[in-house]
Every structure is written in structure tokens, then in C-alpha cells.
Design a protein around this nucleic acid. Structure first.
Lengths: 263, 263
DNA sequence: ATATGTGAAAAGGTTCACAGCA
DNA sequence: TGCTGTGAACCTTTTCACATAT
């Protein structure tokens, strides 16, 4: 704006970066908490701390939405809550179905976080005939046979899959055929969907494995640190660093012998 | 290796990119499935399809681990399973505690995916005295009072938090003080932890909000198309915008008219 | 005086395209 | 011939640092 750029940025005009979109709910949560405490304004520094990001990132993120702050002051909490809600599409009501009412599905059905923010559990669906009619979270479970009509009767466009892995793809296909275009998948399997359908996945086991990777690293460093710590004191991290930088054997970036066991 | 580079790449030697680490569990899952079907080898193309990524990315990812494939042939399934497992630290056993045995905690306790891959639920912990001793997933729930001794007696370094948001930070601090250095957080709140402690978070509501954002876009496009086909073109959103934006006069990136979507 | 908004630089991640090896 | 492994190009995201506005 200071710059007199009058030509359009051509190919990237209204698009908010995906990384930013993924953080908006975080900001919204922090803002909602402030709002409940009747805090009127907040600085990028404070809000960033509350959301667990750094302030430069937050300001950059907000800059994609527009200029919602006041220089020298900060952001108006209520106003931002509204703007972000609107950006995320939370000013409307999203009916959601949950398919697969096992332990996890039931937990999801009972989860309060849904209702609190624009999402409404419209139906619970399970393939087990014995479950049909049983109440879960105050709602009767319906049978998979009726999936299509449930979707269309309720205008559902978001589906949650919490079935066993083996059933997920088939359920996914029926959901999509019935008109669902966004899917949150808890089943530990890759779903294939046509273009235009969004899938996000949540996989417990994957998250734990990522933690284990880093945990293992730390353990490795500790061992190195311990070994180093028996005698010399301070070199701790430096030593650890050197140790796992090349100690690992196998074929590193510059090819040497594959130390461990082949198949 | 073909290149005769003998000097070190300096600052990035043994580090596997975080994005790659996050995909290793995916590859591992696909490989495990192949292994169970006794498939001996697999090409990057096939494996990539099974894991839901593209083959160039997969090959690049594997290149950070070493040269585990055979040109003209593909990858040995068993060998890769072993290498990735080792890289992720899954060749050892990770005792895990779950704190907060509500609906979600119980579902996690019952989740088979834990045990299947190196993780062992060592204890279930809850603050409710009425739950103490009650069996969940074949295991007695223990009281929070004993958290510290449970952690140290079992050598737990990974903790799962599935408490209400209000309790999470405090539980986190006790876990960390007791020796936990990796945390998987299901509570919808930001945890602050000291350096050296890893936190990963899973938030249902956030995932749904991200879906809603994209869903809204899709709907918006449809509406815009319809509207454009009927009466006047763009004025719709501009009016809406002016209405809720009030004094602020939201500036688009270049101060030009926000053509289609409500910001 | 203070805190936003944003170009520009840096870092990180993905895709391309092909050399190199089986 | 066929498929891996990887520099190089490209794109996205993060960080820096300061001009700009209140």
C-alpha cells in the first residue's frame, strides 16, 4: 500500500496460506478465552504467547486476513473473534455425522468441543444392527443402511470416520457418493477420494511414533552425555552432538558399510 | 557418494527432516501390510500409492535414511520395515501412561494401535477417586496421587494427556517433573514445557475447523457461480462486508475490491 | 513511545528430470 | 530396460527488521 502497486499479484490474490489456515483455530481458541475474561484488546505478543506461536508469525498470519489491528495498541478481541470465526466459516452451523460408534466414535460423540463451535452432531451411524436404536451421547445410533438418506436429509457435508481400518474406504465412498465433501478420518488407513473432497486424518499411533523418534534421539544423546559426563563436565551438548552426528554407522550421506542386519 | 565430496555438509549431517520423520510411520504402515501379504519387494511407485504420497517424495525421504533400494528392482519389504522401525525407535518397547480416563482416555486405552507397535500402556491415571481401582481396558485405573511413582517405577518417558483442558498444564508439569520428556496432548489447550520436552497435540475441534474453512470455500464458489448466473455480479459480499466491518474499512492486500468471497 | 503490517532474506519442503546402477 | 538416488529448480513457510500509523 505504501508502494503504489496497482497491478494485481496475478496468481495469488485471495488465497490464505494453508499453514495460516491451520493456525486460525488456535488463535480463535486463545481469543475466545480472552473474550470470556472480558479482555478488550491484546497485543500480537500476548496473543502469540497464548496460542503457542511467535508474534511475527501471528502478525503475518493476520496480515493475510486484512488489517485488523491498531498500531501502537493491538487487536480488539471481540472483533478478531468475529473475523476469524467468519473466515473459518464458523458463523454457520455445520451438521456432522460420525460413522463407526466404537470406543472412539462414542468418545467423539460425547466430546463437547464439537457443539461449542458451530458443529452439530447430526447423526451417529454404525454397521452393527445390535447398536441400532441404542442411545450414545443422548442420541440413537442409526444403521449404516440409512447412511445415504441421513446425509441428504440433514444436508451433511462433513463426515467423521471412526470405523475399523477395513471398513473405512467403503464408508468413505458411500459418504462421498451421498454428498459429503469433507472427511475427518480416524481410521488408520489411507483414503482415496475424488478431487474436490478434502480429507484430514488423525492417527494416534503415528503421533506416538513421531514422539518415539525424538525420544530415541534424546536417549541416544543421554547415553553419549553420560559417557562423556563420567569425566569431563561441561561439554555435554557438544559431545552429544558429535556423537549422533556420525556415530550411527550404516550408509550415511557419504556411503560406507551398512553396519546392521540386512533382512 | 558419486560426487567426491569429502568435506562434511557442516550443519546438516545426520538430521532427518521433520517432514520426513512425520511420514515414516505412514510408510511403515503400508510396508507392514505388504509384509503380511508376503510381498517380497515393492517399487517406490507402488509403495507411494499405498502410503498416499507421490513417489518422488518417497524416494527423497528414503534417501535421508540411506540407500536401501535396488535400482531396476525396488525395495525389499522386510528390510525396509526393519530399517524404518529402527529409525523410529520402535525396536524397543515404550511404556506409556494415559492421564485422564474419561471417554477419550478410555477409548485410547482400548485402542489396539498402541500395543501393535512398540507401545505398551503401562498405567491409566485419573484424578477421580471413584475411578481408582475400576478396570478400564482390563487395567485398574490408578489415582493421580501416585503419578510420580508410577512414572519412575515404570521408566515411562511418554505421556498421553486426555484430561479436561483446565487440568492439562498441571498434569503436564507433574509428568515432566517426574521424568516424562514426550507428551501427546489431547486437551484443547497450549502446554508450556521446558526445553528438551516434545509435545504433539491432537485437537478434534481444530481439524474440523480447518475442514470447515475449505468447505465454506467450496460452498462460496458454488454460490458465487449461481449468483453470477442470476442477477447482479459481485455486490453481494461487498455489502455483507460493509455491514459487519463497521468503521474499520477492512483493507484487502492491495486495497482493491474483494471480488468474490467474503474475505 | 509503542505495536502493527510487510517487504526481503532465509530456511524448509516438494517436484523435476536425469544420471547411474542393476 | 527399469527403477533408484539425487542435484537443481521451484514453491511454501518462517523469520527478520523496520517503515508506518496511532
Amino acid at each position: 500500500m505504501a508502494t503504489g502497486r496497482t497491478h494485481r499479484p496475478a496468481t495469488r490474490s485471495r488465497g490464505i496460506p494453508e499453514a495460516t489456515v491451520a493456525r486460525l483455530p488456535l488463535y480463535l481458541r486463545a481469543l475466545t478465552a480472552l473474550s470470556e475474561r472480558s479482555v478488550p484488546t491484546v497485543s500480537s505478543e500476548e496473543l502469540a504467547a497464548a496460542a503457542g506461536v511467535n508474534s511475527a508469525k501471528l502478525r503475518k498470519d493476520f496480515s493475510y486476513l486484512g488489517s485488523y489491528g491498531t498500531r501502537g495498541v493491538g487487536y480488539d478481541v471481540e472483533y478478531l473473534v468475529y473475523q476469524i470465526s467468519r473466515e473459518l466459516g464458523l458463523t454457520q452451523d455445520w451438521p456432522v455425522v460420525i460413522v463407526g460408534i466404537g470406543n472412539l466414535g462414542a468418545a467423539l460423540a460425547n466430546y463437547g468441543g464439537f457443539a461449542s463451535r458451530g458443529f452439530r452432531v447430526a447423526a451417529l451411524i454404525d454397521a452393527d444392527p445390535a447398536m441400532a436404536g441404542q442411545p450414545v451421547a443422548g442420541m440413537p445410533v442409526q444403521h449404516t443402511d440409512d447412511l445415504e438418506s441421513i446425509i441428504s436429509d440433514n444436508g451433511v457435508s462433513i463426515g467423521v470416520i471412526s470405523t475399523p481400518a477395513g471398513a473405512a474406504q467403503q464408508v468413505c465412498e458411500r459418504l462421498v457418493a451421498a454428498g459429503v465433501t469433507s472427511i475427518l478420518n480416524f481410521a488408520p488407513t489411507v483414503l482415496s477420494v475424488p478431487d474436490g473432497v478434502d480429507v484430514r486424518k488423525v492417527d494416534l499411533s503415528i503421533e506416538l511414533q513421531i514422539l518415539a523418534f525424538h525420544e530415541q534421539r534424546k536417549a541416544g544423546e543421554d547415553v553419549a552425555a553420560e559417557a562423556a559426563a563420567v569425566v569431563p563436565p561441561a561439554a555435554r551438548t557438544v559431545a552429544a552432538d558429535a556423537a549422533d552426528t556420525e556415530g550411527n554407522g550404516r550408509k550415511g550421506p557419504d556411503g560406507d558399510v551398512p553396519a546392521v542386519m540386512p533382512a
